[in-house]
Nucleic acid binder design. Sequence first.
DNA 1: TCTATATAGATGCAAATGCAACAAGCCGAC
DNA 2: GTCGGCTTGTTGCATTTGCATCTATATAGA
Lengths: 152, 152
Amino acid sequence: MQMQQADRLQGLKYPADPIQRAWVAIQRMGPALLERVEARLKDAGLPALEWYDVLWALEREGPLRQRDLAANMLIARYSISRLIDRMEADGLVERRECPEDARGQVVHVTEAGLALRQRIWAVYGPAMKDALAALTEDEALQLAALLIKLGC
Amino acid sequence: MQMQQADRLQGLKYPADPIQRAWVAIQRMGPALLERVEARLKDAGLPALEWYDVLWALEREGPLRQRDLAANMLIARYSISRLIDRMEADGLVERRECPEDARGQVVHVTEAGLALRQRIWAVYGPAMKDALAALTEDEALQLAALLIKLGC
DNA sequence: TCTATATAGATGCAAATGCAACAAGCCGAC
DNA sequence: GTCGGCTTGTTGCATTTGCATCTATATAGA
């Protein structure tokens, strides 16, 4: 198999300055953990997490407009447009007319989409747990609280 | 100006489960903060942070092989190869022969590279500080410590 | 030494991304 | 009403990515 250099996390140094240290840690660990998890999805022949996010948002909140999906996922409109193109081509979602705004469309999940989400979660859930296994539950909550503070 | 949907961080929900909550927070805040900072670089007509990372690694540690840059930045070899192509074309770095391994090359930073790094830092530093302004120094250190734990 | 295997880096190709521009519909001021 | 400006979603184009593969060199082991 190829490399996996995102797991060369051991020898890396961090700045001493608190702000810089936090910044580097966030920007380094986010992608590294993501790569670990996505590698397991790929090994299982499953699509990337982006697809999961769409499917889960639709299952959780019901049919949504592309605009709202974009807002949920913090990605650009044109990205959603093309992501939904691909997912629709795979039969996971459907675009339907939007009654109260003729510009818009409403995205619905299909049965196949629901089924795929479950198959992804069966791998994603455990992989996420493993990725964060070094933290206790309290620490995980602390970490989340600190990060969420940054969004406000 | 265009959108900036990465700042729609306010209304977003987080799972109650500690592990999931931490995961979502990391994966959401990392890119959102990055986008805020990179927007300021772009407004100033400066290149993306990737370039900064290369320049700073070379300035800090001296000339490096592409292999070592890749390890430092947690990115794939072929990405480095092409990143250095572009930076070399811009006169910021130079590839030179590697005396003790004829396969390899050593990347050196040029005067222009040193100068550019300083210009980037003048924007990057303050932007980073602003992005993390919601945290005290203690909190920043706490956050960093929790994240760094995940790499071990 | 000679061979097998591993590593460094580059690259062709297909897919994905970002940007800018666009059409179509909405909405509020007048 | 209608006019200007905003929002929604799409698309052409150039750039960037990821994957697989390739060459050249290094290194370990018989």
